[in-house]
C-alpha cells in the first residue's frame, strides 16, 4: 500500500491515472448514460485533434529554453483551410492531404527558424506567427467556411471500424505510436530531453541544438496539419477559426500531463492521459446536461487542484526520503 502510494505520488502519469478513475466514478454517478464501453470508446473522437496538437506542444516544451508553441491552433486552422482550398480546386483527397502535410511542416519550419536561428524568444515568435497564420487563414477563406467535401471524406472522422472511430484507429493511434518510438526509442528523443534538461551540456556532447529545435517545431506543425484534416472530415467544413483556442487547450493538457514549462521534464504518456481526462470530462458533463458555462470552470478547477495535489504529494515524498537518509 505504502509503495503504491509512493509511486503514485512520484509519477504524474500514475497520479493522473488515479484522477482518471476518480473522474470516471464521479461522472458515472452523475449520469447513468456515461459509463458504457461503447460511449467511452466513441467519446475519444472528440479528443482526436487535441491529442495530436498536445503531443507537438509537449515536445516543444520538453526541448526547453522556454519552448512553447502558441501558433499550433492557428497552424491547424491554416492547414485546414489549405486542405479545403486544395479539394475545392480539384485536388483529390490524397493530393490535398500531401499538400496540407507539407504546408504544416512549412508553418512549423517558420517557427523553428525564428526560434532556433533568429533566436527570437519562443513565446514572442509563436505569438507572432499565431496572428499571421490566423490572418492568412481568414484572408484565404474571406471568413467564409469552406464546405462541400465529397461524401466519401466522411469515412475519416464520421465513421467507425469495430466500434472505434476511424480517426482514432487509423490516425491518432498510429501517429502517437510513431511519435512515442521517435521520442522514447530513438536518439532524437534522448537529445530532445537532454536539450531541455541542460542545453549547455547538450552542446558539449555534440548535439546540434538548432537542428533538434527546428525538428521539434516542424513536428508540431506537421501534427497540427494532421489534426486539421481529421477536424475537416469531422465537421465536413474547413473553417478559418477551426483551431482558435486549441493552443491554450494543448498547453493546458501538456501542463496537466506533467510537462515542465522549463523543459526536460515530463512524459508524453501523462499528456495522453491528460487528454483523455479532459475529453471524458467534457463529454461526461455534457451527457449529464451540465450547463456548458460550468464546463470551462470545471476544467480550470481540475487543472489547479491536480497540480497542487501532485506538488504536495511530491514534496511529501521528497521529505520522507530525505529523512530516511
Amino acid at each position: 500500500m505504502k509503495k503504491i502510494a509512493f509511486s503514485i505520488a512520484k509519477s504524474r502519469t500514475k497520479f493522473l491515472l488515479l484522477l482518471f478513475v476518480v473522474e470516471m466514478v464521479v461522472l458515472s454517478l452523475i449520469s447513468p448514460y456515461f459509463f458504457s464501453i461503447n460511449n467511452l470508446v466513441q467519446v475519444t473522437q472528440f479528443g482526436a485533434a487535441l491529442t495530436l496538437l498536445s503531443l507537438g506542444e509537449s515536445l516543444v516544451m520538453i526541448a526547453g529554453r522556454d519552448g512553447i508553441d502558441i501558433s499550433v491552433g492557428s497552424a491547424m486552422s491554416l492547414s485546414g483551410v489549405l486542405f479545403g482550398l486544395a479539394v475545392m480546386n480539384g485536388c483529390s483527397i490524397f493530393t490535398a492531404t500531401v499538400i496540407t502535410l507539407i504546408g504544416g511542416i512549412l508553418l512549423g519550419t517558420v517557427n523553428g527558424l525564428l526560434v532556433a536561428a533568429a533566436k527570437v524568444p519562443a513565446l514572442i515568435a509563436t505569438l507572432g506567427t499565431q496572428y499571421i497564420y490566423g490572418s492568412l487563414a481568414l484572408y484565404l477563406t474571406g471568413g467564409i467556411p469552406i464546405s462541400g467535401f465529397p461524401d466519401s471524406f466522411k469515412a475519416l472522422s464520421l465513421e467507425s471500424t469495430f466500434g472505434i472511430p476511424n480517426q482514432i484507429l487509423f490516425v491518432v493511434v498510429p501517429v502517437t505510436f510513431v511519435v512515442f518510438i521517435l521520442v522514447y526509442k530513438m536518439k532524437f528523443g534522448r537529445r530532445v530531453y537532454l536539450l531541455g534538461t541542460n542545453p549547455e551540456a547538450a552542446k558539449y556532447t555534440g548535439i546540434r541544438e538548432k537542428q533538434i529545435r527546428m525538428c521539434v517545431y516542424m513536428l508540431a506543425g506537421l501534427l497540427a496539419a494532421v489534426s486539421a484534416i481529421i477536424n475537416n472530415s469531422w465537421l465536413m467544413t474547413a473553417r478559418a477559426d477551426a483551431g482558435s483556442g486549441m493552443e491554450m487547450q494543448a498547453i493546458t493538457v501538456a501542463v496537466l500531463g506533467g510537462i515542465g514549462v522549463a523543459g526536460g521534464v515530463g512524459h508524453l504518456g501523462g499528456v495522453l492521459i491528460g487528454v483523455i481526462i479532459i475529453t471524458m470530462m467534457n463529454s461526461g458533463l455534457q451527457i449529464a446536461n451540465v450547463n456548458s458555462i460550468w464546463q470551462l470552470a470545471t476544467l480550470g478547477f481540475i487543472l489547479i487542484i491536480a497540480i497542487i495535489l501532485n506538488h504536495m504529494m511530491e514534496r511529501f515524498v521528497a521529505n520522507v526520503e530525505k529523512s530516511r537518509k
Binding site: M1, K2, I8, V25, V290, A297, T298, F316, V320
Partner: peptide
C-alpha cells in the same frame, strides 16, 4: 501520507462532486 492521500482524494473528489451536484 496515507491520511494525506485519503484527504486529498476526498477533497479532490468531494470538490468535483460538490460542484457537480450544485450544477
Amino acid at each position: 501520507l496515507a491520511a494525506a492521500m485519503t484527504i486529498s482524494m476526498l477533497s479532490g473528489c468531494g470538490g468535483t462532486s460538490n460542484s457537480t451536484e450544485e450544477e
